[in-house]
Amino acid sequence: MKPAPFDYVQPDSVDEAVEVLAQYGDDARVIAGGQSLMPMLNMRLVRPHVLVDISRLPALSSTVDEDGVLAVGAAVTQGTLAAWPNLGMTLPLLAQALPYVGHFQTRNRGTVCGSLCHADPSSELPLCLALLGGEMDLHSSRGVRTIAAENFQRGVLTTAKAPDELAVRVRFPKAPAGDSFAFREFCHRHGDFAVVAIAARRSGTAISLAVGGVADRPEVCHWNSLPDDSVEDALNDLAWVLGGNDDIHATARHRRQLVRHLGCQVIDATRPDDGTE
């Protein structure tokens, strides 16, 4: 269980990195933290001609608090983001979800952008991005483009990023005052990929839910208003629409049940405080 041979490139700049990607296209793989890629290399599920290591690129190692947005560079680890000052205020959903991304040892090395680009349909960060509706900056020798979260993940392990593109940073919109968020997931063991993960956002009367682990990518459902007595039916229909698959860990039916159950929990958890504080 050892990787097939590959060339290894450590570019000194984003330009150099995208140059290599332009040259090799789909035969190159970018490695940042490698916590998703390395298992696939070890199992020889992925056999790149060249591995482009961007983990030490200073340009990608920063997290920038921009106007209304937290821009997280492609080499920033999940652990670094989790420890970002005031994350609980600026991005409460990420603060809630990050502790469920793998284990602290993998968060030490695994990057935020890497998890997004890996596009596992069950993982937490793509789910958060889908709900928050951020953007990815993609660089290539052809230029720079920004792609909206909803168009980024296309399906199982598949994103809109072209083979010659490098995801340079992700921008998460900060939580507007008054919005509340909640995250829940069910997995058989702590740190596993979720069987079902759900994130909710409440903004006034509007409620959005993002569901991971059921369809081939995280899917978002938005209601302008969702009265309490409609929640159960709405979640039931959502569960049916998402469908779900059977695998050795759960049945489609159980996944739908978790959509109903966790959906209810996250919606409840986003209720505004009743003012007693």
Binding site: F186, H188, D233, N236, D237, W240, V241, G243, H249, A250, T251, R253, H254, R256, Q257, R260
Partner: peptide, 26 residues
């Protein structure tokens, strides 16, 4: 005792969708 299995034992019926139309081609 996977929860998916236990769920079948404790609730043999799954609540149906409000209408089959919402399922579309699914």
């Amino acid at each position: 005792l996977k929860p998916a299995k236990v769920l079948e034992w404790l609730a043999p019926e799954e609540p149906p969708p409000s209408s089959n139309a919402i399922l579309g081609s699914a």
